[in-house]
Amino acid sequence: MTRIDVGSVLRNSANLPYRNLVTRSTGAAVRQCIELELAALPADETATLDFSQIGMMDFSCADEIVAKLLLDPPQGAPARTGGGVIFHGITDHHLEAIEDVLHHHGLAMVVHFADGGARLVGAVNDDERSIWDVVYATGGTSTQALADRAGRDLAEVQQVLELLHSRRLVRQAETGYHPLGTLQ
């Protein structure tokens, strides 16, 4: 799994001597640098975006960076890794702006918190969240095993898993569905 230090991108690649992510133009500059790094990854590689070195993030930057990286890239933009993106180093200070923009766009993302736990943040329903929790808790397994573990009907679980996969919140493999990755 590839780790991209957003603080380092801000200071070095985008050449902005700050630790706070504010203003839309800053957000766009940082996102464009991240997009180039993501485009260079192998197709099935999962990337971790590490926000540990970021002080605060305002709504405009959350929209410009987080939301736009999760949305499908516009025509002409670099292709993204199909392996998905995990967010790390997100604190309560970042969450307010992030949750706001995710709900606005109907998006969700996987966050690995400092305590080792992971959860979905953003616009997800109870069904999606509970099945995602099972995938994460098992480390990934067959659809049947996930349905058994969840105590749910196989067809229903399959439907939710396909949705989670289409939203790049789980990985699909021959053996079934898996978490996007573990933090390294």
């Binding site: 706070n20 504010v22 203003t23 839309r24 305002d58 709504f59 405009s60 200070h93 307010e96």
Partner: peptide, 17 residues
């Protein structure tokens, strides 16, 4: 508390923008 302070700074950033 720190979260409310952060919100204050965010409000400042957005209004100035």
């Amino acid at each position: 508390e720190p979260k409310a302070q952060m919100g204050f700074t965010m409000a400042l950033s957005e209004t100035v923008q």
